[in-house]
Design a protein around this nucleic acid. Sequence first.
RNA 1: GCCGAGGUAGCCUAGCUGGUUGGGGCGCCUGACUCAUAAUCAGGAGGUCGGGGGUUCGAAUCCCCCCCUCGGCACCA
Length: 681
Amino acid sequence: MKLITCGLPYANGKAHIGHLRTYVPADVYVRYLRLFGEDAIFVCGSDCHGTPIVVNAEKEGLKPKELVDIYHEHFQRVFSEIDIEFDYFGRTDAEYHHERTQDIVKKLLENGYIYPKEIELAYCPSCERFLPDRYVEGVCPYCSAIARGDECDQGCGRHLEPGEILDPRCKICGAKAVYKKQKHYFFRLTEFRDFLLEYLDNLKGTENALNYARQWVSKELKDWCITRNLEWGVRFPGEDLVVYVWVDAPIGYISFTERACEKRGLDWERIWRAEKKESEIVHFIGLDIVYHHCIFWPAMLKGSNYSLPDGVVASGMVKVEGKTFSKTRGYVVWLEDDYLASGLNTDFLRYYLVNYTSHQKDLNFSWEVFGEKVNNELIANLGNFLYRVTYFAWKNFKDGGEAKIRANIDEDALRVIEETVKKIRDAIENWEFKIASDAFMELSSFGNNYFQSHKPWELIKSDIEAAIQVVSTCLHIAKALVILSFPVLPKTMRRFSRIFGFEIENSKVEDVLSINDFVIKKPEIPFQKIEEEKIAELEEMMLERIRRASKMEEGILNEGEEDIKTGDKMSEKEDLISFEEFKRFDLRIGKVLRAEKIEKSKKLMRLEIDIGDEVRQVVAGIAEDYTPEDVVGRLLPVLVNMKPAKLMGVESKGMILAADVGGKPVLLSPDRDVEPGSKIR
RNA sequence: GCCGAGGUAGCCUAGCUGGUUGGGGCGCCUGACUCAUAAUCAGGAGGUCGGGGGUUCGAAUCCCCCCCUCGGCACCA
């Protein structure tokens, strides 16, 4: 028995191609396992908790549950449309999930892996509540960018622990937050270091995930704050706190397994109880959540006597039209609004996602390539073979509505089919879905070749016995193709298998090789070709979205206008400051006297700047774009009363100002020579 | 800068415990065929195997240096 899970989709946004990159291969994997006779359970569900959902719900004037309902229903619907079939698709706000989570938290408490600690937290006096995570907006203590409470999303990208953020403000009412002491609970992640090192050595999965995780563990682990001040979430036992969303989300794998097992009359404990474990657990995830699955999660399981995952399979990132996937920039393909709305066969997209490149590598989605792959590979090779063979058989041997053909199969062809099965089996074992799908495409190619070179359309007139052998051999190949490609192309092959008169859902590899006489019903074309105009249309739609997005970024569109398709509103209100506030900035023109690149650093340059009454040492992140020679002698605007900081061990007192052009600094200069120290206002 | 993964024809890739002329798929060109969704089949063009050194009788494959891409860490006060 094998349990397969997929990373839970977060229930505050719609499904897009980035999601599919892990869900489709996982579904393909499960279907192949079943084809090979393995008993597999496949679970997933909506991740319903966490601050973003609360914040977004509030913004939309909804209760968190109402928001979650919308997206939970959405995911369920679109997954089923693209034939991603879970045994159970649950939700983490369900009663049973809360119970399981609390059970695990209690076990961790009993086992001494959770301890309380007083920390200072942002508190909004006007809302009268503590401000967790994204309820807080403030200044990143590391890079001083505007940041969210849990992550410096605009700046350095660092994860921020509760209490770290500077100058916190309430995101709801905008009031200045104060720090208040409060008791929170921490998970002793640090105690699991040795365990994790060993565990990761034996963990199976894709290299991209394992290497990444090992890198983290070999560095420093920190204990992990696992409680939040929220109403929405799983209650932490005995406290007016909720468990951090990343604690309860993976527990969904367990609680959903319980439900799935209940449905099928199985004992979930044989999967998840350490002492009873007898089946394998494999997680399919995106590369971005390796940390949670290879570090937090096994430590939690270990600490509460649950069984440990055996494999973590991480899919590479998705690019769209050659650019980094980005919802806000428009480089995204939405499953419902783009793909399903286009009316194209969902199997096309499944094939593309599985066959474009290796599971671990970055996948580029381009409508043009999509059209080519579908028309020239899937349809021209596989679709055409299936149709030409079955149609030929039906047309020439039909007797009434059906054609009966005696099986007389070429041994060589059987051997090729056997090899194909072996290739697929090996590939699936190694999570190489491209290789598996290439294998059945090769078989199809062999079939076309066989049919072509044996010319049954001539034999049928001269040597009927020989014709029967060729036709039945090709029919046999076709049947094998239907079964072997079903995991990737379930919709099409389910339909097409009917002309052979068998139930594809229950087919096993053995059926691929077992020889039976054929009864063929009148076939229909398995795939409808994609018109070039359709591709052009879809491409145009995407370009339009990208254009719109870039205009949005430049602020040309009116405030509040919806970002097309993403549903995200431009909610950043203008931040106005008073003249009083502005006066707090001591801005002056400084003259660079000396400059040198800081060793061991990529971006940092140490500058000595004359600011009139003194010479300041300032560290600036410009070394990637400027050499010391470029800047020595230059006049630059300097924020003089910047809080001093140390960077790479070098003290910096002040900050030079530069234009930000696509993340690159561009230095600014006064219109003509001015004295160092001149005030800027 | 450190760590990981990569860099093979326009695109996706196999080969990487060194050994006959670096395979395959898509695209491109030519021909054949007509059962088939202008599908198929045969043939062809196209590669300094990121660059430079070295080891060897012989390297895409081993060693050294460098460059580039992606991701992580450190770092843009």
